[in-house]
């Protein structure tokens, strides 16, 4: 079933006399419940693609359809987990999620139901113990957990993750990857995750979308990851199909589409 459809999408930024052709003719169909990773070198337009799906940036040509409706503005049905958590520092963890829940479910849920829903989402990321803390009082990994809880609390059709663990240390990142996998298996959300970490992409995704280098980047290859779920990072490390998938992504990134720094 086609849930999210991206057709002939391209994006050009115009700044005065300068035009930058960032994305060109992107075609991608994502099914409901699917976990898709988008990988590519920095500057290839991965984040632009995510912003286009989120509606935070306007499409130049082509179109995006979600569940049969065109995407042309941001909305809570495409919740974003931002790279730097983007929690509001003057609100407690609870109030940060409450802001989202009140906005999305203000009319459909009672106050008590909304409270339960907030706590349920905090439980999901194991952060209910820090409900009354402010973002500055918790660690980076915890903030990102809260960011995920806030996005999940909007009950989005698609959860968009923009390099969510890029700023975290390796151990914390592994914990959060497990948390995301766990949530995905429990709730069956459709998720799109931008990453530049090959292991992360292979471990988490059903399909890996590999982007060519910009300018005018497009989808170079799509790799289906055949690994059964639930996946265990330690068991996978020695499995030939995992190694093969990893190698395929590495080959794409470092042989066929090497990042040329001096392109400018």
């Amino acid at each position: 079933m086609k849930y999210l459809q991206i057709e002939h999408l391209s994006k050009t930024f115009v700044n005065g006399a300068k035009t930058a052709h960032v994305l060109s003719d992107i075609n991608l169909t994502i099914e409901k419940g699917e976990f898709v990773s988008i990988i590519g070198h920095s500057g290839c337009g991965k984040s632009t693609l995510l912003n286009l799906i989120a509606g935070l940036t306007d499409v130049t040509t082509g179109g995006i359809l979600l569940d049969g409706r065109e995407v042309n503005a941001p909305g809570p049905d495409r919740a974003v987990v931002f790279q730097n958590h983007s929690l509001l520092p003057w609100l407690s963890v609870y109030d940060n999620i409450k802001l989202a829940v009140t906005k999305v479910f203000g009319s459909s849920k009672t106050k008590a139901q909304r409270h339960d829903w907030i706590m349920q989402n905090l439980d999901l990321v194991q952060m209910s113990h820090a409900a009354d803390k402010r973002p500055a009082e918790i660690s980076g990994g915890m903030r990102q957990r809260v960011g995920i809880a806030r996005a999940l609390a909007m009950e989005p059709k698609v959860l968009l993750l923009d390099e969510p663990f890029g700023a975290l240390d390796a151990l914390t990142r592994a914990h959060l990857q497990d948390a995301v996998m766990d949530i995905h298996s429990r709730l069956g959300n459709t998720m799109i995750m931008i990453t530049h970490d090959v292991d992360e992409a292979v471990l988490l995704a059903d399909r890996i979308v590999m982007m060519t280098n910009g300018p005018a980047a497009t989808i170079g290859e799509v790799l289906t990851v055949p690994l059964a779920r639930p996946r265990d990072r330690i068991a996978l490390a020695s499995r030939p199909d995992y190694v093969k998938a990893r190698e395929a992504v590495l080959r794409f990134l470092y042989e066929r589409h090497r990042f040329v720094e001096a392109a400018e």
Binding site: A54, P74, G75, P76, R78, V80, L88, K103, V104, M154
Partner: peptide, 19 residues
């Protein structure tokens, strides 16, 4: 980032001002 959060949540002008 805060503007993006507001956009995703579809806060209106008044909500954006106060919140």
């Amino acid at each position: 980032d805060y503007r993006n959060v507001a956009a995703v949540l579809r806060l209106n002008q008044v909500e954006f001002f106060w919140k």
